[in-house]
Design a binder for these strands. Structure first.
Lengths: 360, 360
DNA sequence: AAAATTAATGAATACGTATTCAAAATAAAA
DNA sequence: TTTTATTTTGAATACGTATTCATTAATTTT
C-alpha cells in the first residue's frame, strides 16, 4: 500500500528498498489494538475509584501510602500516564512553554535551545518549538501558542506587533524576550548588558592601540545591534577616534561580504567590532584570505562567545554572553509569573565578560 | 514583589534595573481579566449553537456560507480559537509531532530542526521539542510524548530501548528514526545511503592518489558511523590500501584531538575520511596548525555538508546529506501513517552527492 | 470505651470541544 | 401547491481528568 502511494521512492525517482515490508506489514495488522489506558482502567485494576488514581498522579494530593503503591503498580502494569489534555482542560493551564526562534543557523541559538530544554524539563515542562522566518512573528504562530494554552512564551530572536502582545496580556500568559528587547516597553526581557559591554570593547580596542575603527552591525532593526553600536560609538567619540559603520545581517556570509568590501575599498581599519561572532568569523575569513595579518594589522572582536570562536583555528576575541545565566534568569521569571501572574515589565541585564584570544 | 523574591538580581549578586516596574505593575493589575473565550461565547454573539461554531472550525464540516461568515466575524471580535486540548480529548489525536534531538551543537541538526518546523507548520502541525543527553532516550521523555498523545515521533539522533518501542506500537504512534537506524529492525528510518556514499568516497580518494588512509569514526554505537566505515573499508580492502581507524565522537573537539594524536604519533596518512563535517573541521584545524599542507600532503573529506564546510576558510570536501529531501521523505511517511497507521517498518535511503572543495 | 478530630476515599460534576441524532429549513421534484 | 430529497442546525452526549462535597476509615483525645 505504501508502495502504491509511491512513498518509497525518493525525489529523484529511484525506488529504494523497503526492508521486509510485506512481512512487517502483515505483522503490523496483527498488533493488538490496546486502547488508550485511562485512570478508570487503573482504578478498576487497583480496586479504587478514578478519583483516587487521579490523586496519586497529582502532586501533593491526599492519598495513603498503601493505596498509592497499589495504584502505581496497576498503572505500571497497564502503562498508564495521565492524559495531559484532559488534565489541561480542567486546570486551564499546561506544562508547555512556547519557544519562538528565528536564527537557528547561528550556533548561539541552538545552544540556547538546549539550555532551555534542559532547564524546563527539570521543572516538568515541555517545549513547543516555533520557528519563524520573519523578524516579526506572525499572527498564526501566536494563535497556535494561544490555542495550546501554553504556560508561557519565550521569544528569542524576534519581536511582536502590538496587536499580538495584547492577546498575551489578556490571557495572562507570561512573555519574555530573550536577547532582544521588544519595540514597546511593556514587556519583560533578558539580555546581556549590551551597552556596557560595547563600551568595554571600545575601551579595550583603544587601549590596544587601534586608531580607526569599524562597527559591523547585525540586522538594523534589532535592539541588540543598536545598543551595541551606541555604547561603542559613544566611547569612540569621547576619545575622538575615527569610525565607520557597515550594516550587515548577523550571518557568516554577511560578515564575509563586508570583509571583502572593506578590502576592496581599501578601508581596512585597525580595529573592528562585529556585532556577533558568526559574522566576525566571516570577516576574519575574508581578511585572512586577503593576506591581512591579524591581530598585527587589524584587530577583530566579536560578540556571543559561541563554541566555534574558541576553536584554535578561529581563536576569536569576543564578549561572552553567559547563556546559562541568561536562561536561568528567564526561567526564574517565567516560573514566578506562571505561579502568580503580575504582567510586570522590565529588563534583566546580565553582565558578560571579555574573552581575549588571538585576534586582538 | 518580584524584587522581594530577588528575581531582578543576576547570579553575581548585583541588582540591575527593572524599568518602570512599579508603574507597570500597577497597570498590570488594571488589566481586564478576559476569561478564555470559548465556542459558547462565540455562539451566543453570533446567535447560533455551540455545535455550529465547532463546525465552522472543523475542516470539511457542514455549514452554510452565511452562518460561517457570521461565526467567523464573532470569533474574530472575541479573539476565539478552538481549545486544542478539548479538541484532542474528543478526537484522541493531536496536531503535535514529537521531535527528539541530541546533538543540537552539531550544526547539521539545527538545520534539520528548522526544516522539520517549516514543513510541519505548513501542514498545521506543531513541534514538541525534546532534548536528550543520552544516546538512548529515557523512559520519562517518552512518557511525556505519550501523555501528550503526539501524532507522531521523530528521533534524529538517538535510539530507543525495545521496551519503549512497544509503547509506540501499542498506541499506534508512528515513529521514524532520522539519520539513525534503530537497533531493532522493527522501525522505520530515513537515512542517507551511507554505505554507498562511503564506497564512493573511498574510490574518490584512491583515484586522487591516496595510498594510506584513516577513517575517523563518530560515536561507535551509531549506525551511521558503522555503515560509513563498512563501505569505506570494503573498497580499501579490495584495492589493498592500508588503513587505520580512530574512534572519536562526532564533535569538533574530538576531531581536533584525533588530528593532534595523528601528528604526535607521526602517522598522518595521505587520505582521511572523517565521519562527519564538524569533526573533519577539527581534524583540519589540528593538521593545519602543525603545518601539514592540505590537500598536498593529506586529503581530508567529511560527511554532511553543513553550511560551515562551504565557508572559504574551511572549504571542506564532503558528502552532502540532502536534508530537505530527507525531511520531505520523513514528513511524507509520517503523514501517511497518521492518516492510516500501518506500523510498517523499513528504511528509506536517500542518495547524497560528493561536494568537492579544496581539501582534496 | 466513647467522643472528637483527622485522614482517606468515592460519587458526582465541570472543563471545551466533536459528533450523533433528530428536527428544522431549504431546495428540488411532482 | 404538495411531496420528497437535501442541506443546515441544535440538543444532548462523550472524551479523561481534577475537584468539591459528603461519607467512611483511622487516629487521637477525653
Amino acid at each position: 500500500m505504501l508502495l502504491e502511494q509511491g512513498l518509497i521512492t525518493c525525489s529523484i525517482g529511484t525506488i529504494y528498498y523497503l526492508r521486509d515490508a510485506a512481512i512487517i506489514f502483515e505483522r503490523g495488522c496483527e498488533v493488538i489494538v490496546r486502547k488508550g489506558v485511562t485512570a478508570k482502567d487503573v482504578a478498576k485494576l487497583a480496586g479504587v475509584s478514578q478519583s483516587t488514581v487521579s490523586r496519586v498522579f497529582f502532586e501533593g494530593a491526599m492519598v495513603s501510602e498503601r493505596t498509592k503503591k497499589k495504584v502505581l503498580a496497576a498503572a505500571e502494569e497497564l502503562g498508564y500516564g495521565p492524559n495531559e489534555f484532559a488534565r489541561s482542560l480542567i486546570t486551564n493551564r499546561t506544562k508547555i512553554i512556547g519557544l519562538v526562534m528565528k536564527g537557528v543557523k547561528n550556533p548561539f541559538y541552538p545552544h540556547v535551545l538546549k539550555e532551555f530544554a534542559t532547564a524546563f524539563k527539570r521543572l516538568g515542562y515541555s517545549i513547543l518549538f516555533v520557528h519563524t522566518n520573519n523578524d516579526e512573528i506572525q499572527k498564526d504562530d501566536i494563535m497556535t501558542l494561544l490555542n495550546y494554552k501554553v504556560a508561557g512564551v519565550i521569544i528569542t530572536d524576534a519581536t511582536l506587533s502590538l496587536k499580538v502582545t495584547e492577546d498575551f496580556k489578556a490571557n495572562k500568559i507570561p512573555l519574555v524576550f530573550f536577547n532582544r528587547k521588544a519595540g514597546m516597553k511593556d514587556f519583560f526581557s533578558v539580555c546581556t548588558n549590551n551597552y556596557e559591554a560595547s563600551r568595554h570593547i571600545a575601551e579595550f580596542l583603544i587601549q590596544k592601540g587601534c586608531e580607526d575603527m569599524v562597527y559591523i552591525s547585525g540586522n538594523h532593526d534589532t535592539s541588540t545591534s543598536r545598543e551595541r553600536e551606541m555604547g561603542f560609538v559613544e566611547v569612540l567619540k569621547k576619545h575622538h577616534v575615527h569610525y565607520k559603520k557597515y550594516t550587515s545581517d548577523y550571518t557568516f556570509a554577511g560578515g564575509y561580504t563586508t570583509g571583502q568590501q572593506m578590502v576592496t575599498e581599501n578601508k581596512v581599519p585597525s580595529g573592528i567590532f562585529v556585532a556577533n561572532d558568526i559574522m566576525a568569523l566571516g570577516v576574519l575569513g575574508a581578511l585572512r584570505e586577503n593576506g591581512i595579518s591579524i591581530p598585527e594589522t587589524t584587530k577583530v572582536i566579536g560578540f556571543d562567545n559561541i563554541d566555534m570562536s574558541a576553536w584554535p583555528t578561529n581563536s576569536l576575541t569576543t564578549w561572552e554572553q553567559p547563556i546559562v545565566e541568561m536562561v536561568e534568569q528567564t526561567v526564574r521569571y517565567m516560573m514566578a509569573e506562571i505561579k502568580e501572574y503580575s504582567g510586570v515589565s522590565g529588563n534583566i541585564e546580565v553582565q558578560g565578560r571579555l574573552v581575549e584570544r588571538k585576534t586582538t
